[in-house]
Nucleic acid binder design. Sequence first.
RNA 1: GGGAGCAUAGCUCAGCUGGUUCAGAGCAUCUGCCUUACAAGCAGAGGGUCAGGGGUUCGAAUCCCUUUGCUCCCACCA
Length: 874
Amino acid sequence: MQLADKYLPETIEQKWYDFWIDNNLFHSEPDEREPYTIVIPPPNVTGMLHMGHMLNNTLQDVLVRRARMQGKNACWVPGTDHASIATEAKVVAKLKAEGIDKSSLTREEFLKHAWEWKEKHGGIILQQLRKLGASCDWERTCFTMDEARSAGVIKVFVDLFRKGRIYRGVRMVNWDPSAQTALSDEEVVYKESQGKLYYLRYQVEGSDKYIVVATTRPETILGDTALCVNPNDERYKWLADDARVIVPLVGRSIPVIRDEYVDLEFGTGALKVTPAHDVNDYMLGEKFGLEAIDIFNDNGTINDKVGMYVGMERFECRRVIEGDLAAANLLEKVEPYTNNVGFSERTGVAIEPKLSMQWFLSMEELAKPATTAVLEDIIKFVPAKYKNTYRHWMDNIKDWCISRQLWWGQRIPAYYLPKGGYVVAETAEEALALAQEKDASLTMADLRQDEDVLDTWFSSWLWPISVFDGLRYPNNPEIEYYYPTNDLVTGPDIIFFWVARMIMAGYEWRNEKPFGNVYFTGIVRDKLGRKMSKQLGNSPDPLDLIAKYGADGMRVAMLMSTSAGNDVMFDEALCEQGRNFGNKIWNAYRLINMWEVDEKLEQSEACREAIEWFDEVMTERVARIDRDMEQYRISEAFTELYRLFWDDFSGWYLEMVKPAYQQPADAKTIARTKHYFDMLLRLLHPFMPFITEEIWQDLKPEADVKSIVIARQPAADREANEQILARFTLAQEAISAIRNVRKQKNIAQKEPLTLNYIADENYPAEYAAVIEKMGNLKQIEAVTEKDSTAAAFIIKTTQYFIPMEGKIDREAELKKLAEDLTYYEGFLSSVMKKLSNERFVSSAPEKVVANERAKQADAEAKIAAIKEQMAALQ
RNA sequence: GGGAGCAUAGCUCAGCUGGUUCAGAGCAUCUGCCUUACAAGCAGAGGGUCAGGGGUUCGAAUCCCUUUGCUCCCACCA
């Protein structure tokens, strides 16, 4: 095949992806092989691919492709998440842009729009993943809201309800006034915000005295139902036990209560109590039997309960009230104040603590086996530091608010009866049957299903089970075969949202872990360390990068910069490096592809030596890469391969076996070289699938294997011969030294040189042919006499000379030797210090002491050799 | 407020159970090369008090204590 002199990824990537799909190489069915399963962290159905997905999916693809090449039945299940809040918000916005208000639509009408939107935009992200080369089993693509997944969710809800784990009640929840739904604690993000601390005057009833209260939220005075001070506070001892105060502006009379909850140090030591709008106030309210006055509408505007500021937006109200308070002389002062405010993770608006009727899942029982599994490494976290985070959260787990006041999602299967009470069932028919047990006269028309849907995570937590339909059909062959999955690759930011809950669900419905290992990636940041975000505009579009550098180049960039749990400082230069590596592989192949075979040609000695050495290199590296991969040191494994290919194979091996220009090569060497190339391609394939397939198909090492995707991963079947590797290093050092001489003396590589050496045990005679070829030497000769006119160097203890005929600068040579001498003498003395230390010799392990003795001998020999050369020069 | 982690070359990071010439790699920089596979390349070079201090040890980048700086998680005193 005629090959372009540069690797052009864009010309081959689509071709091979189609080939893989056409040949069904990513599809898995249960069989007798060992399964290897990964379920994708489902991206939002309407989402777009970002750098985080690139990182995450590159890693998953590496793992799954490698497993596939190890002969396992590899199955990577893709899918998307319905992301109820995010998607509903997008649909509402889209409708609004078209002039349609959500409130003007019925639930059914709205859902029709939402499904249309999903059909149109959903799955774009999965198409994008194909560009990256993701080897997902697309036939298995799931959606958290498709029929099977939804049925599983409903079944689980009913199951939990019957087990008594789900309850309904009025609680203080995090209210998102934009999405107009409750949120779980995990969906609230706290951020430091610049606010103000307002000091308000509450007049004591029947007196002209005031109590000053500090608050960050003056608008909530509308809901005040008490004022609280610490019973130990000397400042308020004068207050009568049954004292009452007047709420500023509102004029309502409220009691003064006393509770040690109040911090004496904060503000004035007096606290206004608004049970409907603050978690702590709510608890005080419960304790003292206070009324809770909810002053907000669901959208965050003031309601008509109090009859003031009605319809005003909450922050607007705060500004207006500040003015009114000041005008009424009820505002003592205002100070700037920084505090933490909770914001909705999805819509970004400030959360309103609000009392409302919601569904909750009791978590304590679920958490028990899930905690044990991680602490005892039944499920292994990589890196392990996240075990602590996990344990802390699990030990303090709180009940999960699972209802959302949205339409996009699985509707809660609770059915209310006309005379109060409700039943929970998987279908309306079953619900009716249950209802009729209570009242035989009820008909379907009497039942009213709960309006709320379930939290998205209430479907995501079932993902490893639900993708195999293991909830509806717990004994089906697929779930039995693929479950538990092997590895989960995800970000630590969703450890509570998702990872912990999947573990709980796994034990609850399978009585088994959902996955064996969790690999936590870091966050992708820009090179300044900032998190990539749309707002900052610092996130490149991954598809642009793929177009520019190729998918393999992009993958390499991700692989080079990641280690488990650490953030990725992304720099486009890494993509370039990845592309360059692809080009390097390409050109190495061009080289061997261009060789002519001469069947009659004998293998040269240099080739034989090179092969003897490279066999050991491959053996050693394959073992090292295996070790790294077993420990999920994926970046290290790749770096190892990168250096193996670039330095050892291209830089050394190919240069050693390369025939002279337009000369043929012998068949034996070509065969061996192609064998190495084949091995390297297979090792590289999980990391760089496209270029390896392109070349492998041309190389065709195995006629009966149709793709490298299903070729076998090389395995280390023996120990590498350390002796050969060490001896060869001596030859490499000699070659480097010759190159140095050339550089210093300004001698072109083309000009052949003579190399003389004084033979000793450190002269690698068995690799002389390699030294000759790589050094471009016309001859190598053993001598006994030092040559003061030659350029000289010492490798270990062997003295080498390159005759120079007067080109030698004696002074410079002597100076360099003197520097070497100083270094080695210093080194020797540090070794001797250790060896003469009685305590070192007696307490250090035998091996270490022996090593020091060897260092001593080497250093002494080296020093002797340097001295001899210096003497010869004088 | 509680907890975890990090600090090694200009940058990004390796350095695994303390022990080789241990102070490394890649990128960047500098020097010399368009040498017929590759200038997206080749051959070289410079560059670090392993954050500061103390300790344990025959021996510390590595273990312990401490100071400083940064990051993250949890909690949420109005």
